[in-house]
Amino acid sequence: MKTLKDCNKACIVKVVKLHAETDLKQRLISFGIMKEAVIEVLEYSTAKSTIEVKVGKMRIALRAKEAQLIEVEQI
Protein backbone atom coordinates (compact mmCIF):
# COMPACT_ATOMS: atom_id res chain seq x y z
CA MET A 1 0.00 0.00 0.00
CA LYS A 2 1.43 3.38 -1.04
CA THR A 3 0.40 6.42 0.97
CA LEU A 4 0.58 10.12 0.21
CA LYS A 5 3.47 10.41 2.68
CA ASP A 6 5.52 7.99 0.51
CA CYS A 7 5.31 10.24 -2.57
CA ASN A 8 8.14 12.43 -3.76
CA LYS A 9 7.90 16.13 -4.57
CA ALA A 10 6.10 16.85 -7.91
CA CYS A 11 4.43 13.42 -7.79
CA ILE A 12 0.85 13.27 -9.12
CA VAL A 13 -1.35 10.55 -7.64
CA LYS A 14 -4.98 9.44 -7.40
CA VAL A 15 -6.64 8.66 -4.07
CA VAL A 16 -7.58 5.00 -3.69
CA LYS A 17 -8.90 5.02 -0.11
CA LEU A 18 -9.02 7.14 3.05
CA HIS A 19 -8.08 5.18 6.18
CA ALA A 20 -8.91 8.05 8.56
CA GLU A 21 -11.42 8.12 11.40
CA THR A 22 -14.80 9.80 10.86
CA ASP A 23 -13.93 13.39 11.93
CA LEU A 24 -10.65 13.56 9.99
CA LYS A 25 -12.22 11.77 7.02
CA GLN A 26 -14.99 14.39 6.83
CA ARG A 27 -12.42 17.21 7.04
CA LEU A 28 -10.35 15.70 4.21
CA ILE A 29 -13.46 15.24 2.07
CA SER A 30 -14.39 18.90 2.67
CA PHE A 31 -10.98 19.80 1.17
CA GLY A 32 -11.70 17.63 -1.87
CA ILE A 33 -9.47 14.74 -0.78
CA MET A 34 -11.70 11.75 -1.51
CA LYS A 35 -11.65 8.57 -3.57
CA GLU A 36 -10.59 9.19 -7.21
CA ALA A 37 -9.31 12.73 -6.42
CA VAL A 38 -6.06 13.74 -8.15
CA ILE A 39 -3.42 15.17 -5.82
CA GLU A 40 -0.09 16.81 -6.67
CA VAL A 41 2.66 16.85 -4.03
CA LEU A 42 4.13 20.36 -3.97
CA GLU A 43 6.51 20.57 -1.03
CA TYR A 44 7.71 18.93 2.19
CA SER A 45 8.75 20.80 5.33
CA THR A 46 12.39 20.52 6.35
CA ALA A 47 11.71 17.75 8.89
CA LYS A 48 9.06 16.15 6.63
CA SER A 49 6.50 16.75 9.37
CA THR A 50 4.10 18.48 6.96
CA ILE A 51 3.37 18.07 3.27
CA GLU A 52 1.86 20.69 0.95
CA VAL A 53 -0.43 19.27 -1.72
CA LYS A 54 -2.63 20.65 -4.47
CA VAL A 55 -6.17 19.33 -4.96
CA GLY A 56 -7.87 21.03 -7.87
CA LYS A 57 -6.96 24.71 -7.43
CA MET A 58 -6.64 24.47 -3.64
CA ARG A 59 -3.33 24.16 -1.77
CA ILE A 60 -3.49 22.27 1.51
CA ALA A 61 -0.89 21.54 4.18
CA LEU A 62 -1.29 18.15 5.86
CA ARG A 63 0.51 16.64 8.82
CA ALA A 64 2.65 13.63 7.95
CA LYS A 65 0.46 11.38 10.13
CA GLU A 66 -2.63 12.54 8.16
CA ALA A 67 -0.90 11.97 4.81
CA GLN A 68 -0.06 8.44 5.96
CA LEU A 69 -3.79 7.65 6.14
CA ILE A 70 -4.38 8.48 2.46
CA GLU A 71 -3.81 5.48 0.19
CA VAL A 72 -2.84 6.52 -3.34
CA GLU A 73 -1.73 5.14 -6.71
CA GLN A 74 0.57 6.69 -9.30
CA ILE A 75 -1.09 8.04 -12.46
Rank of each mutant, 00 (worst) to 15 (best):
T3C: 06
L4S: 01
L4F: 01
L4T: 07
K5P: 04
K5F: 08
D6C: 04
D6H: 12
I12H: 15
V13D: 11
K14G: 09
V15L: 09
V15F: 09
V15Q: 09
V16T: 08
A20M: 03
T22P: 15
T22S: 11
D23H: 09
D23Q: 10
L24G: 06
L24Y: 07
Q26P: 02
L28N: 02
L28Y: 05
L28R: 03
I29G: 03
I29S: 04
S30K: 05
F31C: 04
G32T: 06
I33D: 00
I33N: 02
M34L: 14
E36V: 06
V38N: 12
E40H: 14
L42A: 07
L42E: 06
L42W: 04
E43W: 14
S45L: 04
S45N: 09
A47S: 15
K48Y: 01
K48S: 04
T50S: 10
T50P: 00
K54W: 03
G56P: 12
G56K: 09
K57D: 12
R59Y: 08
L62F: 03
L62H: 01
R63G: 07
K65V: 13
K65P: 09
A67F: 04
Q68M: 08
L69D: 05
V72S: 05
E73G: 02
Q74T: 02
Q74L: 13
I75G: 14
